[in-house]
Structures are given as C-alpha cells and as structure tokens.
Computed example of a mutant assay.
Amino acid sequence: MTILGQDRAIAAFRAAMDSGHLHHAWLLAGPRGVGKGSFARAAARRVLADAAGPRSDLPGLEVAPGHRIAHLVDAGSHPDFRLLERQEWDKGSKKGELRRNVTIDQVREMGELFALAPSFSDWRVCIIDAMDDLERNAANALLKLLEEPPGKSLFLLVSHSPGRLLPTIRSRCRRLDFTALDDASMDRVLAEQQPKLSAADRARLLPLAAGSAARAIEFAELDLAPLAEEALAILRHGDPDNSRRARLATSLALKAAAPRYAAFLELVPPLVAAEARRAEGERRSRAAAAYAQLRETATFAPRHSLDPASTILTLGTIMAGVSG
C-alpha cells in the first residue's frame, strides 16, 4: 500500500521500529482524509509480518507481496489484530446505517485479546479508527489498557481532533502528526481512484478538498464542482435576486440529495477560507467573519437536524455578504 505525502510520519515510525523500542501507543493526529487510517493498517501489517517472519528488508511500511500475515490482517482474520471502527446497526429502521460511536462493548472485546496467548508471534496490534468516535465510557475503558499495557502490544489511535481527547489518553501516547497533502499527491490519488476524471476536472477539485484525499474522492463521486462554482459566484458577485441561493437550496433539499448536502456543508467553510486568503482589506475581513459563521452553521445544522433548504439559504446569505 502506497501512502503519499506522509514521509516524515513513516520515517519516524520506522526509526522506532528499527530501534527495538517501539512505543506501545501512537496517536495518529491530523486532518481527516490524509492517510492516517491507511498508515495504521500498513503499520499493523508490517509489525505483525516482521514479528512472525520472514522479516522484510523493504523500505517504509511495505510488506512483500503474498506474505501470509499481510493477507490475514487485510482480511480481518488475524487472531492477534483488532480494528475498532463504527459498526452498522443490524436491525430496526437504522439497519445498514453506521452507529454514531465506537462503543464500550467494542473496547471491552478488544481488551479480551490480551487475555489470550498470541498466535503467530509475541506481538498484538489494535487500531481505533477513529478515536473521535469513541463514546465516553469506551474512552475510559481504553485508558485502563493504555495505563498498564501488556508486553509487545501496539495501539494505533487515529484522531482528526486530538485536542478533544482525554488528556490522560494523550499523555500515554506518542504523537505522530500527519499534514494536509500537497497538490501532486492529491492529483495522483485522484488519478488512481477516479480514472475517468480528466486532468482539468482533477485540477478543479484540488483547491476544494483542502489537502484531504478522501474529501477530494467524495467530491468527485458526488459531482460537487458545479455546486462549488455556484458558491464562489455568490461569494464574488453576490446574489441580488436570490436566484443562486434558490438553485442551491432546490438542488440540495431533496432526500435523495442528502449525501451531496452533507458534503456541501463540509465544502463551504474551507472554500471561504481560501477566498479570505486571496482577498485584501475590508473584503478579507468580511470573508474571515463569514468563515466563522459558516463553520458554526455547517456544524450545528446536521447535529440538530435543521431543514436543508433553510440551512442552504442561510449559508448563501452569509456568503453573499462577502461580495459587499
């Protein structure tokens, strides 16, 4: 697995591996969609594969093609490996939807791993993706594991907002920072994941995704570029007859448009932040103030199930104020 744009993080982890003193808990911190989850899975494969043998002389976190341990980790069937992430509801009206949190029962089940003798080597690896989804009781249960870690155990904890985690959890981890991806890495990921996109279409998406490959892929799949252009038109030229705001509200208010609506809420604040950086004088001040309002509204709306059409009209009004 190729992890683009995170050479420093890979080098730091490899240095710890090669020293023979691998810290038991790593907090993988950085923006959403820049490769933290992929890094965690690659690190788990490499640690477990090297421990079981044969050891690899490949660089970074790569494992030789066909390695039996890598196949078991990828399939989720390695007995010394656990991956905790939000699970699907299995019954009722929410069947198939993801739960809101990683639960305490999942953490307790993970803890049971350490009551058993390891199967292929003396190492056991657990990934939580993401720590931001951990409910409070689950975080406290995890803390107990981190306070008295079993020997040869490795916890890889993905977090998009590490400042919100329990300080006691942060203090027991070695932090590894991940940065937003550069345009070259983003373009390569888009070309691999969305081969039907032209170079011009990829270039339109890059500034919208703010260095997040996951966001860029999602925006491509949802065809968000036309919505972004409409938003930019409101920012730069206003909307004196309300027509632009009305078009956005109409296109995003339908139930079938829910994924595009959610993605648009993510798109707007960084779009305005980028506009603020390009602006000067009073317009820059208006854009900065609009960014704060838009971010608050975009965060508040889904949590409180606000009407999508009204929310889009509110966002459009805030953006129109930037044009002056």
Rank of each mutant, 00 (worst) to 15 (best):
residue 199 A to D: 15
residue 5 G to R: 04
residue 299 T to M: 07
residue 146 L to I: 13
residue 304 H to Y: 12
residue 82 R to T: 06
residue 11 A to K: 13
residue 143 L to G: 04
residue 14 R to Q: 15
residue 87 Q to H: 05
residue 209 A to V: 13
residue 57 D to G: 11
residue 155 F to S: 00
residue 30 G to V: 01
residue 191 A to F: 09
residue 83 L to V: 10
residue 14 R to T: 10
residue 209 A to Y: 01
residue 64 A to N: 02
residue 93 S to F: 03
residue 166 L to Q: 10
residue 67 H to Q: 08
residue 178 F to H: 04
residue 27 L to G: 02
residue 127 I to C: 00
residue 224 L to M: 15
residue 101 N to Y: 10
residue 301 A to I: 02
residue 147 E to V: 05
residue 27 L to S: 03
residue 230 E to H: 03
residue 270 P to T: 10
residue 18 D to Q: 14
residue 191 A to K: 13
residue 102 V to M: 06
residue 211 G to V: 12
residue 217 I to L: 14
residue 245 R to K: 12
residue 35 G to N: 12
residue 307 D to L: 08
residue 94 K to L: 11
residue 102 V to L: 11
residue 202 R to M: 13
residue 252 L to C: 02
residue 153 S to F: 06
residue 197 L to Q: 09
residue 200 A to F: 14
residue 153 S to G: 02
residue 91 K to T: 07
residue 120 F to I: 06
residue 36 K to T: 06
residue 192 E to R: 15
residue 43 A to H: 01
residue 132 D to E: 09
residue 176 L to Q: 04
residue 259 P to Y: 13
residue 52 A to R: 07
residue 294 L to R: 02
residue 251 S to Y: 08
residue 288 A to F: 06
residue 195 P to Q: 14
residue 84 L to H: 13
residue 274 A to P: 03
residue 299 T to A: 09
residue 78 H to K: 14
residue 308 P to H: 02
residue 13 F to C: 14
residue 257 A to C: 13
residue 50 D to Y: 08
residue 309 A to N: 03
residue 130 A to S: 09
residue 273 A to Q: 05
residue 56 S to P: 04
residue 231 A to F: 00
residue 123 W to Y: 09
residue 316 G to M: 00
residue 1 M to P: 07
residue 232 L to T: 05
residue 281 G to Q: 11
residue 136 R to A: 09
residue 211 G to H: 15
residue 163 G to V: 15
residue 317 T to N: 06
residue 272 V to H: 01
residue 101 N to D: 12
residue 100 R to D: 05
residue 228 A to S: 02
residue 191 A to M: 10
residue 60 G to A: 15
residue 59 P to N: 07
residue 294 L to A: 00
residue 43 A to T: 05
residue 22 L to K: 04
residue 46 R to C: 12
residue 79 P to W: 08
residue 324 G to M: 05
residue 260 R to K: 13
residue 186 M to C: 13
residue 171 S to N: 12
residue 98 L to E: 00
residue 311 T to W: 03
residue 188 R to A: 15
residue 13 F to M: 13
residue 5 G to Y: 05
residue 119 S to Q: 11
residue 258 A to N: 07
residue 106 Q to T: 05
residue 166 L to D: 05
residue 66 G to R: 11
residue 293 Q to V: 04
residue 124 R to L: 07
residue 178 F to G: 01
residue 259 P to G: 08
residue 265 L to Q: 01
residue 234 I to H: 02
residue 249 A to K: 00
residue 231 A to Y: 00
residue 197 L to D: 06
residue 4 L to C: 07
residue 78 H to Y: 12
residue 131 M to E: 00
